[in-house]
Design a binder for these strands. Sequence first.
DNA 1: CCCAGTACATGAGCAATAGTCATTGCAATC
DNA 2: GATTGCAATGACTATTGCTCATGTACTGGG
Lengths: 307, 307
Amino acid sequence: MQSLLELRHLKTLLAIREAGSLTRAAERLYLTQSALSHQIRLLEEHYGLPLFVRKQPLKLSPAGEKLVQLASEVLPRVAASERDIAKLREGEAGSLRIAVECHTCFDWLMPAMDTFRERWPEVELDIVSGFHADPVGLIFEDRADLAIVSEREDEARIAHFPLFAYDMVALVARDHPLADKPVLEATDFADETLITYPVPDDMLDLVRKVLRPAGVNPKRRTTELTVAMLQLVASRRGIAALPRWSVQHYLERGYIVAKPITTAGLTSELYAAVPQERADTAYLTEFVAITREVSLASLPGIQLITV
Amino acid sequence: MQSLLELRHLKTLLAIREAGSLTRAAERLYLTQSALSHQIRLLEEHYGLPLFVRKQPLKLSPAGEKLVQLASEVLPRVAASERDIAKLREGEAGSLRIAVECHTCFDWLMPAMDTFRERWPEVELDIVSGFHADPVGLIFEDRADLAIVSEREDEARIAHFPLFAYDMVALVARDHPLADKPVLEATDFADETLITYPVPDDMLDLVRKVLRPAGVNPKRRTTELTVAMLQLVASRRGIAALPRWSVQHYLERGYIVAKPITTAGLTSELYAAVPQERADTAYLTEFVAITREVSLASLPGIQLITV
DNA sequence: CCCAGTACATGAGCAATAGTCATTGCAATC
DNA sequence: GATTGCAATGACTATTGCTCATGTACTGGG
């Protein structure tokens, strides 16, 4: 009789539709699969109708469709109001200068910034230009408000928000001898030319986590541009290591092939670092949220970091 | 960080705005004043802003305004979706034939029916024509789907939904001797002509609850029309008893004056009676909900019946 | 066809929290 | 300055939403 429906349910429904399964939706919502299962069972009992057709993959019933439709109209509206309230409290304006150490990050950074700009038009949005070895340092110098980094720094004045994790893959030419191996180990790199961005070794996960510990030190070559890097790989001038999502496009066209790095895999993570005292500034936390949404939706094969 | 806001809160906010106070909003929501107070305190802590200006009467702050605005957009949308789902389950169509024993009820019945028609256009809506002494009987004969009655009947096959309660007032001419008494008792009616609708005495609360128990049996006169009744009262041809809300309009113009009946007051109640097995048919329960909303908003001085 | 692998369902138990009750605090009004 | 009408507060309780552990159903590969 009384309505049972809450915004929580709408969030769940939408997450299930987007993720395509209870299990993955649960991850996004930081809940268990069981919690979601209970939630929808309760809704189904309440409405006396199924919300899903229980098949793999889970499909929405007409009633489920109605609720998801509702969710997709209502939730953005609610988010907008909560944003308005944050603006009342903190003011519309502010600055968001982003420091980036990761070359490939621009792939998702641009769309994320676009969405952000729509929602916080008064916030001055910038990427701190030029390359910087120590993006967190820029925060201390007050030249940046937020830094995209690949490791948490042990520094009390900085708060870290996890963005996502992803696998690095080694890239070799199709006709390269290593293309036949299922997995590349550190020693496989010894006699190759490793092509990287021109950054310190500490910022290259492959070197820091795999090659250096194994004492492997291959010949090196650098380039600023990802396409140039792939070009060199394709023409057998060397091999490279990049996030899988950054090269998915090229892999599908068969220019090059990707190989896992070590049997355990080489997983990297990304965090947003902000000054501790600004950790609950609404537009900063929202930038993080947008980043995760955009990335989750557009980058294949990335994982959430469970805090 | 995580959003705390739920539909529950939006319902509360809207109820407070409509009722003008926590206490009355709480009644409508079947909660305590305390519950609402806790709710809004939590919201205020969460947003770090006040939602109300703490004065009598309670006024919304800008942040509160935003949320109420949100509520007034979102909640009707949610209700519409839930209605759609009910239609999926039970079908769009059906019939709602309403039996009424109370003459004045048409005052609120018409606007309620209008709202209902918008939301359930496929349901065949009718008032069972002619006057009927036993509206519940019409349900058994399947000539009505819902009856408006003033007493619960002890009958297992019928479910009763409380609508609202209201005070009956005695109406006398301005220059009538009784106009000076603060309260009329049963004996005051003895030497007057009582003007009523032409219905059995059992359906006249004044007779059933006050006069008959006191053994008072005044002269009688009947008329079908409320205006005619008031005309007779104004010209000192008799006195009448009607719900206060049905004559508020005329009282304000000073044609007649209203007096409480007995010191304890004469309170009447209205219920919607439906067949037990249809007690959770969506369009029937919604008709009840609409009726209460419409009445609460438009009839002065009515009270909710706390089940 | 079986068996692993993956995903959803279910039930018991627990922890968070939304609500009530009883009281206090605060204003406005006579 | 009492009285009345509301809202706020705090302690306690009931509810319920979630997790954990397990069960069961569906899929795809050998």
